[in-house]
Design a protein around this nucleic acid. Sequence first.
RNA 1: UCCGGAGUAGCUCAGUCGGUAGAGCAGGUGGCUGUUAACCACUUGGUCGGGGGUUCAAGUCCCUCCUCCGGAGCCA
Length: 429
Amino acid sequence: MPVILAKYMGDYLGKEVTLQGWVRLKRKHGKIRFVELRDGSAFVQCVFVKGETSDEAMEDFKKLTQESSIELTGTVQQNPRDGSYELLVKTMKIYQISEPFPITPKEHGVDFLMDHRHLWLRSKRQWAILKIRHEIIKACRDFFDERDFVLVDSPILTPNAAEGSTTLFKTDYFGETAYLTQSGQLYSEAAIAAFKKVYCFGPTFRAEKSKTRRHLMEFWMVEPEMAFATLDDVMNLAEEFVEYIVQRVLERRMEELKILERDVSKLEKIKRPFERMTYTEAVEQLHKLGSDIKWGEDFGGDDETILTKQYDKPILVHRFPASFKAFYFELDKENPELALGVDVLAPEGYGEIVGGGERSADIEHLLEKIREEGIPEENYKWYLDLRRYGAVPHGGFGLGIERTVAWICGLHHVRETIPWPRMLNRLYP
RNA sequence: UCCGGAGUAGCUCAGUCGGUAGAGCAGGUGGCUGUUAACCACUUGGUCGGGGGUUCAAGUCCCUCCUCCGGAGCCA
C-alpha cells in the first residue's frame, strides 16, 4: 500500500492508500466516527464506519487522544457533503497514544502558547504561517538567483561592532571578544568586487531591550548589494523585490492565507509603482496629519503608522538627514545634509520592512565619519581598503523576513512569524 | 527604564458588600450511522503567583517582591 501525503489524495480517488500522521480531533457519532488527521502536508478527515472499517480499528478508535500518532490505511473517497477528499478507513496502526495535549482546540494565552512553542507549531495557524514564511524565503532566493546575484553569506561571529550605537550580543572567542552580527552588509560590500551582484541571507542579532510587536532579538534578513549602483537602482530593485514576494505568496499560498483569514484584496494591490517621497516631503505630510515630528528626527512608530495608512501600497521614503543615519551612507550631492538612504514602509501600519541606500565610495568622507562617531578605526581597515582598490558607486538594502511575514500574513505581532522567537525575557524553548 | 492591565482547576475565565471555591473546554464513564471546536448525561480535578500585614474571618482590603500582557522609549 503506498504511503502518500494527504495533499495528494485527489490523485488516488477510489484507490487504497496509507496516511501517516497525528490525530487533530476526533468525533464520535455512534457507529460512524471521524478522525481529523494532520500529516504535515494537509488536514484530512478520516471516516470509521461499522462494517467497512475493521472491528479492531473500530475498537481502537476509543483509545485515540488528540495528537496520538497513527497510520491509517483505507480508500480515498469524496465527502458526500462538500466533495472534499477523505479516507474511508480499513485498518489502523497506533504508534503512540498521546498524553492529554496541553493545547486544546479552545483559546489560550500568549504566555502559555510561547512556553509550549514546541507543541504550538502543530496548530493550523502556525502551520499556515510557517508555510508562508517558507514561500517568502524561497521567493527571496529565486528573485536574486534569477537576476544573477550570487549568494555570499557573511559571518555570524564578527570581531567588531558594525555600528557604534547599537547594542550587540557579546561572546567570548578564545579570549577575544566577538559579537553576533547585526548585518552582513559590510561583508557584502567586499564581495561585490568579486561578483558584482551578491546577497546574503541569515540570522542577525540585536541586544536592544525593545518590547514591541515589531522587534525580535534574533531575526532573519536578506541583503542584496550591487556594484555600479546608485540610490535609484537600489529603490527600483527594492520595489520590484517586494512586489515579487507578495505576488508569489498570492500565487502559491492562497490556501494558507485563507486559514489565516487574510484580506487578500489588500495584497493584490501590491503592484509597482509604489509611493515615493523624500524624508522632507514625508515630514511635511506628517505635519498635515497632526504629527509634531521635527525635521531632523527619525520617525516614531506612530509616524510610520499614520503615514502608511494614507496609502494602500508600500512607501519608499528616501534622502534622510545624514545626522541620524549610519556612517557609510553616500551624501546627496545637491544637499550634503542628506544621506542617500531609502526605507520601504509596508502598508496597514506594519512599518519599515526594508532599509538601505547608496554607500559612500569616498574614503575621506568615511574616515571623517568614523572619527566623528568615535568608532575604532583599526576595526574598519579592511572595509576602507575597498575604497582603495577599484571603488565604484554601490548600494543595497536589507529586508527583514519576520516583518514581511507578519505583514503578508496580517499578524499583529512578529513573534509568530519565526519558529523559535527570541524575545526580551524569552529564551525558552 | 516608564505608564497602564493581569495572575483563581491542565487551559480560558467568573467569583457581588470580607463569610468556608464556580463554569466551559481538556481528562474519565456511558449513549448516538455524516460529524466539522459535534451533541447529550454523569464524573475526576484547587498551595486562589510568592512573602508579610489588618481582621473573629481574606481569592476579595493594605504593603512588598516576582512573572506575563498592552503601549511608550530604545531601534544600520
